[in-house]
Design a protein around this nucleic acid. Structure first.
Length: 213
DNA sequence: CAGTCGATTCACT
DNA sequence: GTGAATCGACTGA
């Protein structure tokens, strides 16, 4: 008998901690997306930590900009960015206001709303691929920049909420280098995932873009 | 203001 | 395993 996931929204305090504490603690939590199309619930299986201004891999490394301003705001809010001209990725802001840490939500298992997620992820060959990768996760949940800055702790009918769920025991969390991060940021083993879970995305090293001409 | 490239995904060989 | 897609933020002149 497995206990039902705790549906209490995570409190603000949860996110007001060092990002390396928050990131592994997010595994097993449940992200709820409510939209006019219907609800989707997803159990987080893979995340990556980005340590703000001290982290060469972070968007906040060179200080505040128009794009990353939400990361410098209060914890527990969504930082959504657009990349490669066609994808969105979803992060949770961590640490006190004025700092700029965040956790990239990279993959998860769809618990409810799979039918809706399949409509948005037509290229997925099976349900394990619906949210296997950060842009796939955002696509399945219909997350775009309209949700940048959304409070994930508000509860109620907010478009995005993080529930307590069923946290993974720290002894069971795996970690390794972050996917697709190059340069000095590649040395940090700040990717966290639940082992032996088919929804976790494969690791890929950073690939420099080939020069034109 | 032009050049560069990205916390990726997908189709194809 | 390799390369294209696609656009906007950021950088440096």
């Amino acid at each position: 008998m497995i206990a039902a996931p705790d549906r209490t929204p995570l409190p603000r305090d949860f996110f007001d901690r060092p990002v390396l504490d928050v990131a592994p603690d997010l595994l097993g939590r449940v992200l709820v997306r409510t939209s006019p199309d219907g609800p989707i619930e997803l159990r987080l299986t893979e995340v990556e930590a980005y340590a703000g201004e001290i982290d060469p891999g972070s968007h906040a490394y060179r200080g505040p900009t128009a794009r990353n301003s939400v990361m410098f705001g209060p914890p527990g809010h969504a930082y959504v960015y657009f990349t490669y001209g066609m994808w969105h990725c979803l992060n949770v802001v961590c640490g006190p206001e004025g700092t700029a840490s965040g956790v990239l939500l990279r993959a998860g298992e769809i618990l409810t709303g799979a039918e809706l997620a399949r409509k948005r992820r037509l290229s997925a060959r099976n349900d394990k691929e619906l949210a296997k990768g950060p842009a796939r996760l955002a696509t399945a949940l219909d997350v775009d920049r309209d949700l940048n800055g959304t409070d994930l702790c508000a509860g109620g009918d907010a478009p995005l909420t993080l529930l307590t769920g069923t946290p993974v025991h720290p002894d069971q969390v795996n970690n390794g280098p972050r996917t697709g991060v190059g340069g000095a940021g590649a040395v940090h083993p700040w990717r966290f995932w639940t082992p032996n879970d088919p929804t976790v995305s494969p690791y890929r090293a950073h690939t420099p873009r080939r020069r034109s001409t």
